[in-house]
């Protein structure tokens, strides 16, 4: 009896252990889901639900409060004939492209400089990273003052006539000011990623190149640049996405002016939201959202190819 019981219990035990062992392999600890829960709930409540509500209202004539009626694709049809909206898309994409190029060229060169054997490397790195920690709107106001006052007086003193009026007051050139300030703020982020990348390139590659007689420039173009391609893609993607949402720096610099020459997509959306044009700008935001998804998909497939590099 006694023997039998102990025997039985042993088999069940081993069986149970086997079972749970097999299950453990497949089953994820529930605690992990618990970790995900807060951000999942917050994301759903703060992003997904409002987005769905917004898309829903883009098919109505709602002004944000009170009664509304469905009006089908009226808002979407109106958007495609609205030069102000088309211009905001043109501006935003043009601005993002130029800025992303400027930021990456500057950040890459700075990173190469800051990882080479120069004096006061740490101090310089700190200095170059400072713009990252200042808020965009503050940077914009400071530069606004520089562009409106300091630069024109410098231009007047130096006798350069086109500098005497503010860059921000020129409808054809105001975008340059916005690119400059945005780049000034965005360079440090890209710089840090490039520095991390450069540090990770092993030194023996350069030694080998040197033995083979490659000069510094050849090393930069033939070794550093290709090895950094992955980091460059990351920087371009992150940068471009951020610049598409351009808002605070433009508000602080030109507020969309002079005229409507520097109104970004985000600015038109918010202006309509404040101005009782809720449904229309929700339609605009929906279109922007779809475009952003398309860009993400393209970028995702590109990065997948790159990460194996």
């Amino acid at each position: 009896m006694n023997k039998g019981v102990s025997h039985m219990s042993t088999t069940t035990l081993t069986k149970a252990m086997k079972d749970s062992g097999a299950r453990r392999k497949r089953r994820v600890e529930p605690i992990y889901y618990l970790f995900l829960l807060p951000s999942l709930v917050l994301f759903t409540l703060a992003i997904t639900v409002p987005a769905i509500i917004g898309i829903f209202f883009s098919f109505t004539d709602s002004i944000g409060i009170g009664d509304w009626e469905f009006n089908g694709f009226t808002n979407y049809i109106a958007i495609f004939g609205d030069p102000a909206i088309l211009q905001s898309y043109l501006f935003t994409f043009g601005f993002s492209t130029v800025t992303v190029i400027a930021v990456n060229v500057i950040a890459f060169l700075l990173a190469v400089g800051l990882t080479s054997r120069i004096r006061m490397k740490t101090a310089l790195r700190t200095v170059f990273v400072i713009p990252m920690v200042v808020s965009g709107i503050i940077i914009a106001y400071v530069f606004n003052f520089l562009f409106s006052n300091s630069l024109p007086s410098a231009g007047a003193a130096a006798g350069i006539p086109w500098l005497e009026t503010s860059l921000l007051a020129n409808p054809d050139l105001a975008w340059i000011a916005i690119v400059t300030v945005t780049a000034w703020q965005a360079v440090p982020g890209a710089l840090l990623i490039y520095i991390a990348g450069l540090v990770s390139i092993p030194g023996d590659v350069y030694e080998a190149a040197e033995i083979d007689g490659a000069g510094k420039l050849a090393q930069l173009l033939r070794i550093t640049a290709p090895l950094m391609a992955g980091y460059m893609v990351i920087n371009v993607i992150l940068g471009f996405k951020g610049f598409l949402n351009a808002y605070d720096i433009i508000v602080g610099l030109t507020n969309g002016g002079p005229g409507t020459s520097t109104r970004s997509i985000a600015m038109t959306v918010i202006a309509g939201f404040n101005g009782g044009d809720y449904a229309y700008q929700m339609a605009n935001a929906t279109i922007f959202f779809i475009i952003a998804i398309l860009i993400s998909l393209v970028q995702l497939s590109v990065t997948r190819g790159r990460s194996t590099l």
């Binding site: 609205d82 002016g257 002079p258 005229g259 101005g275």
Partner: peptide, 30 residues
Amino acid sequence: VPRTIPVFNYTQAVVLGADPASTLSTLDAD
């Protein structure tokens, strides 16, 4: 003019040199 039409921006464009007739036509279209 409802705020969704950027009339302030338009007036600014005009004093800075934009063609008043075409800007006012834009306002009509808006």
